[in-house]
């Protein structure tokens, strides 16, 4: 259990660093969604299944799509996002 928690913590940090360091905004959005997904696994390990469901459905699902909708609007109007 403790190794899984450590692994998930490292995965969160790795995804966060990718999200901040990458050149492409689309990759950054995907990596931020990945941070939320790993965080939901951490919530399960912390005995919080309610929070894990919310984080997986809202934090990593809907938020990512909100970003992509805005990104595609901006790209369609000639921005480079």
């Amino acid at each position: 259990m403790i190794y899984v928690a450590g692994l998930m913590g490292l995965a969160m940090l790795g995804a966060a660093i990718v999200a901040l360091a990458t050149k492409s905004t689309a990759v950054a959005v995907i990596a931020a969604g990945l941070v939320s997904l790993f965080a939901s696994v951490v919530f399960v390990l912390l005995a919080a299944p309610d929070v894990a469901m919310t984080e997986a459905a809202i934090g990593s699902g809907l938020t990512t799509f909100l970003f992509f909708f805005v990104l595609s609007r901006i790209r369609r109007e000639g921005g480079n996002g």
């Binding site: 966060a16 950054a28 959005v29 931020a32 901006i74 996002g81």
Partner: peptide
């Protein structure tokens, strides 16, 4: 701006 919002959502996680 979009990258700043991504960073904020990581901080809130």
């Amino acid at each position: 701006l979009l990258r700043m919002i991504v960073a904020f959502s990581i901080a809130s996680t």
